[in-house]
Write a protein that binds this DNA or RNA. Structure first.
Lengths: 208, 208
DNA sequence: GTTTGTGAACCGATTCACAGCA
DNA sequence: TGCTGTGAATCGGTTCACAAAC
């Protein structure tokens, strides 16, 4: 089962499974069935079994899954455990929040560079990292072994930021900008738009 | 075409269309074809036409869509334009970033309440709003007409926060907590997990 | 001629349901 | 017996392709 054979939707659930398995390992649970794992992950058992089948055949019929073994395989598929250098582009409120977010370190993500274009911000230190000018991006990516970028820039600056990040050699980008972005070849982009999420939720509110 | 007939996936694209239409109105464009709109939104023309067809039939064959009219219908479906009170639960770095996020106001979202459990934080003012104790939540929801909640609490506190928010009468919730949450009846929940997004992106990185 | 709106075909993902293995 | 892994059925959503409308 090659890596590229993992369906997109399955891929989005693997981090959830990884978290559930982390919990079970921490609690010393040795074995778990698809029913138990699915309940903890908030999905259907059949879906979880199908998802895991894309990684290989690691369960035992009549028994369930060995928690530690399965965890190793899920982590392996996601590349968890390997250190991943992250650059945060745009050091406003959101950029500072991402840079300070404690949830990244236990997953192997290390914010090793911050860049901005505002001279007021460049030179300041956030979460122990000095903010550099955007012009330094390419150098920092190489020197600090950056493999992921988080864009926390205003919408109007997002396309330029994405292009700059791509030119610097980073191939995986998470954007918080409320914009449809044209994605350079070979770059994987995921987007989060907080206002859009709230608008989607608004749909369900009473129109009154 | 009733409101509940809008498919989930279409719903997630409506905010994108709304933004594109905002731009066109601002630039004084009167009419646009599905090809033009789709290009700006980053989707296929057929998909855009299908999506819009769920809202009604607002295009003119041989001409395209009247930008202002279509915008009004898309906004209407999402309830944009109506003021929406928002409470931010958990005033850490991320909560402060959300409370200060300028992108919410133009979409009609107004952060009118902040709550936390930490006595160090309660009483401070963020983005012009005083942080209240979580115990005040129900009162604030009523007094300030809150219809949406954003959960920016640590993972371990998320389920309790969600339950408290639901008990206070808020029915639409956006969570940033890295947890699978059990959703109370009648509540719409959307989740954003930054570390999970980075893990998904990690999948595409070279394993070396 | 141009472009919408939509049946119909297609596609990927979910769920069912059970054969196969522990 | 109990539970996985997976064919087969199903479902929702996307894309095709064209008749209808302008």
């Amino acid at each position: 089962m090659t890596a590229s054979a993992v369906p997109r939707q399955t891929l989005t659930r693997l981090p959830v499974y990884a978290r559930v398995l982390d919990d079970l390992v921490r609690r010393g649970v040795g074995t778990a069935s698809s029913v138990e794992l699915a309940a903890a992950a908030g999905v259907e058992p059949a879906q979880l079994r199908r998802d895991l089948s894309h990684l290989g055949s690691y369960g035992k019929r009549g028994v369930g899954y060995d928690v530690a073994e399965l965890r190793a395989h899920v982590r392996g598929a996601l590349g968890v455990g390997r250190r991943r250098g992250v650059v945060v582009v745009g050091v406003g409120n959101l950029g500072r929040a991402v840079a300070s977010y404690a949830g990244l370190v236990p997953r192997g993500f290390e914010v090793v560079a911050l860049v901005d274009v505002d001279p007021e911000v460049v030179g300041t230190t956030v979460a122990g990292v000095e903010v550099a000018d955007l012009a330094e991006l390419s150098r920092l990516v190489v020197e600090r072994d950056v493999s992921l970028a988080v864009l926390t820039v205003p919408g109007g600056a997002a396309q330029d930021a994405l292009d700059a990040v791509a030119a610097s050699g980073v191939r995986s980008v998470l954007s918080f900008a409320p914009r449809a972005l044209s994605v350079p070849d070979g770059v994987a982009l995921r987007s989060v738009d907080v206002a859009a999420e709230l608008q989607i939720l608004s749909y369900y509110l009473p129109p009154a």
